[in-house]
Amino acid sequence: MDALKSAGRALIRSPSLAKQSWGGGGRHRKLPENWTDTRETLLEGMLFSLKYLGMTLVEQPKGEELSAAAIKRIVATAKASGKKLQKVTLKVSPRGIILTDNLTNQLIENVSIYRISYCTADKMHDKVFAYIAQSQHNQSLECHAFLCTKRKMAQAVTLTVAQAFKVAFEFWQVSKEEKEKRDKASQEGGDVLGARQDCTPPLKSLVATGNLLDLEETAKAPLSTVSANTTNMDEVPRPQALSGSSVVWELDDGLDEAFSRLAQSRTNPQVLDTGLTAQDMHYAQCLSPVDWDKPDSSGTEQDDLFSF
């Protein structure tokens, strides 16, 4: 819950932080000083300027060897085509990944977070970031790969997607708890209302004896509580940590079903599988986004697919 609360507080303090972009060759504004600060901008989305290598189908939802083989196929196909790589912007948030063309600003792909089953910074092609997700059109699994400016960037994108998945799962947990509370309150309110109706004398007997209905007592009954809980029953509950912020979080049926399955089948359902080692994760978390744009010590960066 700490990640969720800190993310909400950060967004309320400075929503404009989320509009910064990394990996864009110096076009961005001043960047936060450390990885923790940038992680807090996830709610509205972190932007990464990358190059799209392509996509291939895979048979399993996750796995280092599986993704490595898929990336190898994608890279080989991209090299064989001889075409310049498409420059894209990857927007990562707890909602998922939005992929747009840098030149036309046209939407290429919009992947809900619950469809993503794996992401990684490839070991062999260490400047490549990739994720595996279920197609929104059918049940097939797709591996999408992107060329980053350097290994640090690939690791940073991988960690960002993993963190977005974690925050999304926490949102789901909060929403589920809130819905259970509202359902319980609604049920209790309905029981109270039913009890009051059972003990209320029939209207005919009131008229016969000349008694008047006590409207004041009726007004004191917990009807307002019942209506408050039943009027918006169809509205999706939102985490309290975000009250007053500009973010509107809505959970669709697909996300609810997917996270429910994860909660039942996995020990740590909030953790998205990645190909990063503990050492890689520690190294990337210690980086400032400013470091992502620094040239690798191995030599001059080449803006070309064939540089790796």
Score class of each variant (00 low, 15 high):
3 A>S: 10
5 K>M: 08
6 S>P: 10
6 S>G: 15
7 A>R: 07
14 S>M: 00
15 P>S: 03
15 P>F: 01
15 P>I: 05
22 W>V: 14
23 G>I: 05
23 G>D: 02
24 G>F: 08
24 G>A: 12
26 G>K: 06
27 R>E: 07
27 R>L: 14
29 R>V: 06
29 R>G: 09
30 K>D: 05
32 P>K: 14
33 E>I: 09
33 E>C: 05
33 E>L: 10
33 E>N: 09
35 W>D: 11
37 D>M: 12
37 D>C: 12
39 R>S: 04
40 E>P: 14
43 L>R: 15
43 L>A: 15
47 L>D: 13
48 F>D: 06
49 S>E: 07
50 L>R: 06
51 K>I: 11
52 Y>M: 02
53 L>E: 13
53 L>P: 12
54 G>C: 13
55 M>I: 13
56 T>C: 09
60 Q>V: 11
61 P>N: 11
62 K>P: 07
63 G>P: 01
64 E>Y: 05
64 E>W: 12
66 L>A: 11
66 L>H: 01
67 S>V: 11
67 S>K: 03
68 A>G: 07
70 A>L: 03
70 A>S: 05
72 K>L: 13
78 A>H: 11
79 K>Y: 04
80 A>F: 08
81 S>W: 10
86 Q>P: 09
86 Q>K: 13
90 L>M: 13
91 K>L: 11
92 V>I: 06
93 S>D: 15
94 P>L: 12
95 R>N: 00
97 I>P: 09
101 D>F: 10
104 T>K: 04
105 N>S: 13
105 N>P: 00
108 I>D: 13
108 I>T: 09
108 I>C: 03
112 S>W: 14
114 Y>Q: 06
115 R>E: 12
117 S>E: 14
118 Y>R: 12
121 A>C: 06
122 D>C: 10
123 K>L: 11
123 K>M: 14
124 M>V: 09
125 H>Q: 08
126 D>Y: 03
126 D>G: 02
126 D>H: 04
127 K>Y: 15
127 K>V: 00
128 V>T: 08
128 V>W: 13
128 V>N: 13
128 V>H: 08
130 A>K: 14
130 A>I: 12
132 I>E: 10
134 Q>A: 13
135 S>G: 10
136 Q>D: 07
137 H>M: 12
138 N>H: 15
139 Q>Y: 11
140 S>H: 14
143 C>A: 09
144 H>M: 13
144 H>A: 13
145 A>I: 14
145 A>Y: 11
145 A>D: 15
146 F>C: 13
147 L>Y: 12
147 L>N: 03
147 L>S: 11
150 K>V: 10
151 R>L: 01
152 K>Y: 10
153 M>T: 11
153 M>A: 03
158 T>D: 02
158 T>S: 05
159 L>G: 13
159 L>P: 02
162 A>C: 04
163 Q>D: 05
166 K>M: 14
166 K>Y: 02
166 K>P: 03
168 A>W: 01
168 A>S: 13
169 F>C: 01
170 E>P: 02
175 S>L: 00
175 S>P: 03
177 E>G: 09
180 E>L: 06
180 E>F: 10
185 A>S: 10
186 S>I: 09
186 S>V: 08
187 Q>N: 07
189 G>V: 05
191 D>C: 13
191 D>H: 09
192 V>C: 08
196 R>S: 13
196 R>G: 02
196 R>N: 06
197 Q>M: 08
197 Q>T: 10
198 D>K: 13
200 T>R: 07
200 T>M: 03
200 T>K: 09
201 P>C: 05
207 V>D: 02
211 N>S: 10
211 N>D: 07
212 L>N: 07
216 E>C: 05
217 E>M: 13
217 E>D: 10
219 A>M: 01
219 A>Q: 10
224 S>W: 00
224 S>N: 01
225 T>S: 12
225 T>K: 10
226 V>P: 05
227 S>Y: 01
229 N>I: 05
230 T>E: 01
232 N>W: 11
233 M>N: 05
234 D>C: 02
234 D>M: 06
234 D>A: 13
237 P>M: 07
238 R>F: 03
239 P>W: 03
239 P>Y: 00
241 A>V: 04
242 L>P: 14
242 L>H: 04
244 G>S: 13
246 S>P: 05
251 L>Y: 12
253 D>L: 06
254 G>E: 09
257 E>G: 07
258 A>W: 06
258 A>I: 06
259 F>G: 02
266 R>S: 01
267 T>E: 08
269 P>L: 03
270 Q>R: 06
270 Q>Y: 05
275 G>Y: 05
276 L>S: 05
277 T>N: 01
278 A>Y: 08
278 A>E: 07
283 Y>T: 07
284 A>K: 00
285 Q>D: 00
288 S>R: 09
288 S>W: 08
290 V>F: 04
291 D>H: 05
291 D>M: 00
294 K>T: 09
294 K>E: 05
295 P>K: 14
297 S>W: 00
297 S>G: 05
297 S>T: 00
298 S>R: 14
299 G>S: 08
302 Q>F: 06
303 D>K: 05
303 D>T: 07
303 D>V: 07
303 D>W: 07
303 D>Y: 12
304 D>H: 00
304 D>F: 08
305 L>H: 09
307 S>Q: 08
